[in-house]
Amino acid sequence: MSKGVLLVNLGSPDSTDPKDVKKYLDEFLMDERVIDVPLWARNIIVRGIVLNTRPKKSAEAYQKIWWDEGSPLIVLSERLRDKIDGLTSVPIVLAMRYGKPNIKSGLQELKDKGVDEVLIFPLYPQFAMATTETILVLAEKLRKEHFPEMSFTSVPAFYNHPDYIRVLSNSIAERLKGIDFQHLLFSYHGVPERHIKKSDVTKSHCQIDGSCCKTPSAAHQFCYRHQCYETTRLVAEYLELKENTYSVSFQSRLGFDPWLQPYTDRTIERFGKQGMKKLAIVTPAFVSDCLETLEEIAMEGEEIFHEVGGKEFTVVPCLNDRDDWSQVLSRWIDEWALSKPVEV
């Protein structure tokens, strides 16, 4: 058996042209694990409404953060892949769940390298049906249809792994060194509340009531909300943050159904109105800086804060291709390649 790794991130439009953004949004939002309604309803919502209104606005947002080399998320993911590839003993290939390079082409590249045992590595610390699950489901579908000779192993959510907590905590400490911030906001990507309950393997534990995430349960293995709060708790413990100097919020909601709360934009606004002058924010649901971190948080979030009287708004970059992060991932991969279980 020859081993190889498929790193998978979210993806990006090919360019900031509204046509490319529309194509990307169609693939993304038509995923049944992103907008989890019947196909007929998804068609109405996405192709009848969203794609007739959102691509131009989204294209303008991408234009604000686009780099000369291309999409920040793609460029940063490629840099991470290259660093890991230089540290590991097995082939490392990068794919995106949406857009290019896609998962099928990534698997084909590994096959062409003689690989038949693949570690599927979703680059998401916390599990969610709209992120990790959709990657694994599509990969298995492609395996059955096009790569039956391959076998897959996947890396479980690493939201509480000591290595991840250490690297994330150090990245926060480095960015905030010497900065007299009043509060650290942990902003995670939002998901509809129904996703949390759909992912509940016990079918009864998740109540989203403030207590279930703290009560031990088998549901936590796939509970995005619990994993977000647990990442926050562990980082706060590592950094010895004082109580009431940090909190959790959720960003990027879509539609009118209830999403995880509190919402990041309203939280930033509330802090400013309450007289807070110095706010720091970190986005641990993302390992690569992207539209949601560079535009929604670093630009829109700062604008909101300043409009309501805030003065200093400090954003902690994602882990991106940090050396310590690359070293952690390469070590996890080598442990797997040596037939040791990936202890995540």
Rank of each mutant, 00 (worst) to 15 (best):
G4D: 06
N9T: 11
L10V: 13
G11S: 13
S12L: 07
P13N: 06
D17P: 07
D17I: 09
K19V: 15
D20E: 09
K22L: 11
E27W: 07
F28G: 00
L29N: 04
L29V: 03
E32R: 12
V34R: 01
P38I: 09
P38D: 06
L39C: 08
N43R: 14
I45A: 15
I45Q: 08
A61L: 10
A61R: 15
K64E: 14
W66L: 04
W66C: 01
L73E: 00
S77R: 02
R81F: 09
K83I: 07
K83L: 06
I84C: 06
I84N: 00
D85Q: 13
P91K: 04
L94S: 04
M96A: 10
Y98L: 06
Y98P: 03
Y98S: 10
Y98I: 12
K100Y: 13
K100L: 10
I103P: 00
I103C: 04
G106V: 02
G106E: 02
L107V: 03
L110F: 10
L110G: 02
K111Y: 13
V115W: 03
I120F: 03
F121N: 01
P122R: 02
P125C: 09
T132K: 00
I135L: 01
L136D: 03
L142D: 05
F147H: 05
E149F: 11
M150N: 06
S151N: 15
F152M: 11
F152D: 05
P156L: 09
D163F: 06
I165W: 00
I165P: 01
I165E: 02
V167K: 01
L168P: 01
L168H: 03
A173R: 15
A173V: 08
E174Q: 14
E174Y: 12
I179V: 14
Q182L: 08
S187N: 05
H189Y: 05
R194T: 12
K198N: 14
D200W: 03
D200V: 04
T202E: 12
H205D: 14
Q207Y: 12
I208R: 04
D209C: 13
S211M: 15
C212N: 11
S217K: 05
R225D: 03
E230G: 07
R233W: 07
L239M: 05
E240Q: 11
K242R: 15
N244W: 09
N244D: 15
Y246Q: 02
Y246P: 01
S247R: 09
S249T: 14
G255E: 10
G255M: 10
W259T: 07
Q261W: 13
Y263P: 01
E269S: 14
G275L: 12
K277S: 00
K278E: 08
K278T: 11
V282L: 08
V282W: 09
V282S: 08
F286T: 00
V287S: 00
L291D: 10
L291T: 04
I297M: 04
E303P: 00
I304G: 02
H306M: 08
G309T: 13
T314E: 14
C318R: 01
C318W: 01
L319R: 11
R322C: 06
Q327W: 05
Q327M: 15
V328S: 11
I333Q: 00
E335T: 04
A337V: 11
A337M: 11
P341A: 04
V342W: 08
V344R: 02
V344S: 03
